[in-house]
Design a protein around this nucleic acid. Structure first.
Length: 467
RNA sequence: UCCUCGGUAGCUCAGUCGGUAGAGCGGGUGGCUGUUAACCACUUGGUCGGCGGUUCGAGUCCGUCCCGGGGAGCCA
């Protein structure tokens, strides 16, 4: 065995491999088919691409009878061989093995993955093995390509990548239930006046996992101009749906000297560039999703890249819904938040694509959003997409000190808790805008996977902390 | 958290009116073949989610709990 040769990834063998050259490939066996002509076909996958490499192993190998004929799905092997043109259908090249070494066996009686389709529900119960399947390998590569594309998009535009804290002292970010962080022994927590005494906790105060980096991102936007965060976010909501996770990744750009129009422009350019990158960088994986998961993903993405996004005000959206001949379960009224069925109708029936909804009534949006001159609506924007719903939520931020102070009080919040946030409006305030994008929802949209638990390696949901 | 549908072999599922457990795939053995979701034959394989109840008898009916899917709410 030529131990001096270095391992070559299968993606590279298939892309640049030369017929007649010697390669070393290492990976996991997907299937083995024997020919009684005295040789076997072994399909190997190493995760570098969707395709596997067909190995031709014949009885000339010293361990053909003893090992090759015992190879099963899941075994890891090393193959040293010569790349050859394949006479069979289904692949252009194959590796003629000069040596095949079994690195790790996988008992076929016990190994849960078979060379057939498994349900996503079952694969979730074996999250340590599911990346070895076609679908989850493709998801992992697409997720990686999208993360890289996100950084590329912002870096090209001069945005600073900002690391906002995971642990936060403020429970006033207002975006949902928070996980508590403590080193106190829960059964023996110190008490004072009948309540837990957090002054004796690690931070000397109650601490939580962040639900958003936005408020901190505003700090840096009002110093660096354009910043973005890209990191984990935590919500302790008891949400049991196909589009909610307790731990998910969020992208949050924040731009100084930028109004809502600039915010919309960035969001649209962002989505288009990410979609285009995935189609170029992950062509094979996307073909796979388009064929086996959802036959509309590639046409949809291609359309979005070239098409203008429809921008509607909330008021226009309400008008359209009121005139619609659809029997909605929930009534449509100006001032009420849109239900999922309303959002879906606008995306799927009216526009047939994503919709940017702006200028929502102030009562149904967060206190920090900038009030419009009409006094009733705020400069909010939601980007809604078919099937998934809200994928981006953002706004121009209120930059006027007195107005923000009043709105904090109106919301029943304590201005003292927001002293530094208010300070930003006191010293060198400037118009600024930003949005939050759910990374996993974007991956769902791109891949067509119906359940958000299948686009993150290790999903955290209520009652599920395995792996 | 609410509504709804499910939980039967390693996996995907069928199981009629309450009468004593089935198929395909997978695994094993043999055959055949430059094969590729290979094919053919034989074979292996079960605490019917847990607990309790009704009944001569429960996979099947009732109660309860656990887990999963879909929908809703909260949101990204």
């Amino acid at each position: 065995m030529k131990q001096d040769l270095k391992r070559t990834r299968i993606a590279e063998v298939l892309r640049t491999g030369r017929i007649g050259s010697r390669y070393v490939v290492m990976g996991w066996v997907r299937t083995r088919r024997d020919s009684k002509g005295g040789f076997s076909f072994v399909e190997v996958n190493d995760g570098s691409c969707l395709s596997g490499l067909q190995i031709i192993a014949d009885k000339g190998l010293a361990n053909y009878e003893s090992e090759v004929l015992r190879l099963q799905t899941g075994c890891s092997i090393r193959v040293d061989g010569i790349l050859a043109e394949s006479p069979g259908k289904g692949q252009k090249v194959e590796l003629k093995a000069e040596a095949l070494k079994v690195m790790g066996w996988a008992d076929p009686d016990a190994y849960p993955l078979q060379k057939k389709r498994h349900s996503f529900e079952f694969l979730r119960t074996i999250a340590h093995l599911r990346p070895r399947t076609n679908t989850f390998g493709a998801v992992a590569r697409v997720r990686n390509a999208m993360a890289r594309a996100i950084h590329a998009f912002f870096q090209e535009r001069g945005f600073i990548y900002l690391h906002t804290p995971i642990i936060t002292g403020s429970d006033c970010e207002g975006a949902g239930e928070m996980f508590k962080v403590t080193t106190l022994e829960l059964n023996y927590a110190p008490e004072k006046d009948g309540a837990i005494d957090f002054s004796r906790d690690f931070f000397g105060a109650p601490a939580n996992l962040t639900v958003s980096g936005q408020l901190e991102a505003e700090i840096y936007a009002l110093a660096m101009g354009d910043v973005y965060t890209f990191g984990p976010t935590f919500r302790a909501e008891n949400s049991n749906t196909s589009r909610h996770l307790a731990e998910f990744w969020m992208v949050e750009p924040e731009m100084a000297f930028c109004d809502l129009d600039g915010n919309i422009d960035l969001a649209v350019a962002f989505l288009k560039q990410i979609f285009a990158s995935v189609l170029t960088d992950c062509g094979e994986d996307m073909q796979f999703f388009n064929r086996f998961i959802d036959s509309s993903v590639i046409p949809t993405l291609e359309q979005l890249i070239s098409k203008d996004f429809q921008v509607l005000t909330y008021t226009e959206g309400i008008d359209i819904l009121k005139k619609a001949k659809e029997n909605f379960e929930f009534p449509v009224d100006w001032g009420a938040d849109l239900q999922s069925e309303h959002e879906r109708y606008l995306c799927e029936k009216v526009v047939n694509g994503p919709v940017v909804l702006i200028d929502y009534p102030k009562e149904i949006k967060a206190f920090y959003m900038k009030i419009n001159p009409d006094g009733r609506t705020v400069r909010a924007m939601d980007v809604l997409v078919p099937k998934i719903g809200e994928i981006i939520g953002g706004s121009q931020r209120e930059d006027d000190y007195e107005t923000l102070l009043a709105k904090i009080r109106e919301a029943g919040l304590n201005p003292e808790d927001y002293w530094w946030y208010l300070d930003l409006r006191k010293y060198g305030s400037a118009p600024h805008s930003g949005f939050g994008l759910g990374f996993e929802r974007l991956i769902q949209f791109v891949t067509g996977l119906a359940n958000i638990r299948d686009v993150i390696p290790f999903p955290r949901t209520p009652g599920n902390l395995a792996f």
